[in-house]
Structures are given as C-alpha cells and as structure tokens.
Amino acid sequence: MAKAPLVTLADDGGNSIPTLRASAGAAAYGQTLNQFTGNPVLSTTAATTVALFTVPAGQTFYLTDLYVGANTASPFLVQVTANGAPIFTGYCKGDTGPIDMPGMETQPQAPGGSQVSIVLGQVAAATTAAYYLGGFSQ
C-alpha cells in the first residue's frame, strides 16, 4: 500500500503533485536551485562586494544555506543584501568562528528584480575568504 505524501500541491492545470522538500536538497516543482561560490581577497580599505545574481521578475529568492570562512583571526562583517539592503548580517572569525548555516529554518528572502550580493567587511590585514550561498527562486 502506497503512503500519502506529506504535502500535495496542485500545478496550474489542477494536477496533484506530491512534494516534499527539506532544507536545500533538490528543487521542488516550480523552484530553481541557485548556488554561488567564491574566494575573494578581502580589502584593508573597504568592504568587498560580490554581485551574485538578479532574482527573476515575479519570483522570490529564499536563502537556505550559507557558509563563510577565512584565514584570519580578526572578525569581519558579512552581509547578504538585496538591492543593498541586508537580508542577513553576521560576523565571521576565520580561525574559530566561520558562518556555517546549512538548512536555515527561517529563510531570508529577496524579491523579484533584486540584485543579490554578498558583502564581506573590511579587514585589518589582507586575507582570502571563501563563501557558499544556496537557495531557491520560485
């Protein structure tokens, strides 16, 4: 005997589509997986901003996973922004306190048309950071 799905959605044609999505696994019906990685050299004179993508019109981007690490003992500010407004803010201390947030329960969001960027704060001495952001547009 088949088990009933935990969640059932209907597509635009009225068809029932069983759906189960937990954390940032494979995309569910109507979703597009967005993943971004990089390892910029951080500046000693200003924040380093990396433009990631523009959310498609009529959709919302949901940030589900975030990692930021660095080879520094000094903390620096990390922000994920939508059109320059922070949707996530935290501090990274590379040697003992990276930002490691897989499967965020409360997912920061960016509306359609927004430019999503990661901003890595100014550091005291030149250093390299690494980041991974994952989420869905729907």
Results as ranks from 00 to 15, higher is better:
61 F>E: 13
61 F>K: 10
61 F>N: 12
62 Y>S: 13
62 Y>T: 10
62 Y>V: 03
62 Y>Q: 13
62 Y>R: 14
63 L>N: 07
63 L>F: 06
63 L>P: 08
63 L>E: 08
63 L>W: 05
63 L>T: 03
64 T>L: 10
64 T>N: 15
64 T>C: 13
64 T>A: 14
64 T>R: 15
64 T>V: 14
64 T>F: 12
65 D>P: 10
65 D>V: 09
65 D>H: 13
65 D>F: 08
65 D>G: 14
66 L>T: 06
66 L>M: 14
66 L>C: 09
66 L>K: 06
66 L>R: 07
66 L>S: 07
67 Y>F: 15
67 Y>V: 14
67 Y>C: 10
67 Y>S: 15
67 Y>G: 10
68 V>Q: 11
68 V>H: 11
68 V>N: 10
68 V>G: 10
68 V>P: 11
69 G>H: 08
69 G>T: 15
69 G>F: 07
69 G>C: 11
69 G>L: 10
70 A>P: 09
70 A>S: 15
71 N>G: 15
71 N>W: 12
71 N>H: 11
71 N>K: 12
71 N>S: 15
71 N>E: 14
71 N>T: 13
72 T>M: 10
72 T>I: 09
72 T>R: 07
72 T>C: 09
73 A>L: 09
73 A>F: 13
73 A>Q: 12
73 A>K: 08
73 A>Y: 14
74 S>P: 00
74 S>M: 08
74 S>V: 11
74 S>N: 15
74 S>L: 10
75 P>E: 11
75 P>W: 04
75 P>H: 03
76 F>K: 02
76 F>V: 02
76 F>P: 02
76 F>T: 01
76 F>E: 02
76 F>D: 02
77 L>E: 13
77 L>H: 09
77 L>A: 14
77 L>T: 12
78 V>I: 12
78 V>D: 07
78 V>C: 08
78 V>Q: 07
78 V>S: 08
78 V>R: 05
79 Q>D: 08
79 Q>T: 02
79 Q>C: 00
79 Q>Y: 01
79 Q>V: 00
79 Q>E: 15
80 V>F: 04
80 V>I: 15
80 V>L: 05
80 V>Y: 03
80 V>H: 03
80 V>K: 02
81 T>V: 08
81 T>L: 05
81 T>H: 03
81 T>R: 11
81 T>F: 01
82 A>I: 01
82 A>R: 04
83 N>I: 00
83 N>K: 01
83 N>C: 02
83 N>Q: 04
84 G>N: 00
84 G>A: 01
84 G>W: 00
84 G>T: 00
84 G>K: 00
85 A>Q: 11
85 A>P: 00
85 A>G: 01
85 A>C: 00
86 P>Y: 00
87 I>C: 06
87 I>Q: 04
87 I>A: 05
88 F>D: 07
88 F>T: 02
88 F>W: 12
89 T>C: 03
89 T>P: 05
89 T>S: 14
89 T>R: 08
89 T>V: 11
89 T>Q: 11
89 T>I: 06
89 T>N: 05
90 G>Q: 09
90 G>I: 02
90 G>D: 13
90 G>N: 12
90 G>W: 04
90 G>S: 14
90 G>F: 04
91 Y>I: 03
91 Y>W: 09
91 Y>A: 12
91 Y>E: 11
91 Y>Q: 13
91 Y>G: 10
